[in-house]
Nucleic acid binder design. Sequence first.
DNA 1: CTCAAGTGCAACTTTTAAGTTGCATTTTCG
DNA 2: CGAAAATGCAACTTAAAAGTTGCACTTGAG
Lengths: 104, 104
Amino acid sequence: MTSTLVPVFAALGDDTRWGILSALGEGDASASALADRMPVSRQAIAKHLAVLQEVGLVESHKVGREVRFRVVGSQLAATARHLDAVGAQWDRRLAALKRVAESL
Amino acid sequence: MTSTLVPVFAALGDDTRWGILSALGEGDASASALADRMPVSRQAIAKHLAVLQEVGLVESHKVGREVRFRVVGSQLAATARHLDAVGAQWDRRLAALKRVAESL
DNA sequence: CTCAAGTGCAACTTTTAAGTTGCATTTTCG
DNA sequence: CGAAAATGCAACTTAAAAGTTGCACTTGAG
């Protein structure tokens, strides 16, 4: 599970993809619709959507002749929980080291 | 604050940097010490440490003639909280849309 | 004091990601 | 049944990140 975590962060480390996620927050949309209100080409949007879908941050469904995308909020929440757990683990290690240091 | 969030994710979206963070979890270390147990050069490590420090994930302090780095767990926790909040917001939007759809 | 350990700076190559353009293909709406 | 809208695929160009090598500089351990 940790093995799939890094690509999720990589996907979230791009401004354009956050723009896409933000736009999708106002309702499902196709790549073409997103390209209309964003300063990059449709193909660029399509690539970003592929990246986001690859790591489970969005999912697609067909409506008529277009492919609409929606945000998978639960994946964000899961990633957040994972990150929080990692942070807590480090805090515990640091606290343990501190106790050892103080006991000397 | 949101403006500084994306670079944090970008910093976390790299396997080598996770290796560094993992190694630092076992205790503070210098760039040279990290390079000894990792398959990349010291300079590469130094660059990664600079990136991590830039976004507040590690901090440095001098010990003798070496510069040691430690993980800042609180930054991870803060990022996790932020991500969780974003995810929750999307969930609320999706739920609202669902209610609207069902009321039709 | 001295010299090796540790770090910092800079130029360079390689790799990968982002973005574009162009065209082919599908398909549903009218 | 067409024609326009939407998507998919492929080749290409930038642009940026990752990594390397080499050397100069600093400084603290012995």
